[in-house]
Amino acid sequence: MKVCFFVWLFVFSIAKADDQPVKIEKAWLQAVPQVASATAAYMTIRNVSPLHLTLVKGTSEIASMVEPMITTVQKHQGHETMGMSTVKGLDIPAGGIVELKPGGDHLMLMGLLKHPKEGDRVKLNLVFEPGNREVSLFVDVLKQEPQ
């Protein structure tokens, strides 16, 4: 009986780890005006797999392009300039965390096909390498970062 339980636990934990290489928390999408062409999704991604993961891209029904972006800070004539740039992927070491937050690294949704209204729930699919593994989640559309 006991052995059975441990076998079950073992199988279950493998299956679970296999299902979700990451644990995603505090996910939300910035609500933007109807005319906006782009917005961003924010979340905390915890890598619960034993592998080094890279978030390479995303997909969503509401945008033609979903890409991880990093925020860059450059100095121009002594002034800090915020910019962003596309990256091949966002690295998350095994057991590590990546925080996507307003003003920082983020998941950009460009070419909005459907307007994300405040109060909507939007499905996002994130793709991680290695293994081209897809993780789906629903994010709330909010006007303001939750406290």
Partner: peptide, 15 residues
């Protein structure tokens, strides 16, 4: 307005 990150954040914070 095509800014996905900093500008909506700034405007919603100002709001």
């Amino acid at each position: 307005t095509h800014c996905p990150n900093v500008c909506p954040t700034t405007l919603s914070d100002l709001g």
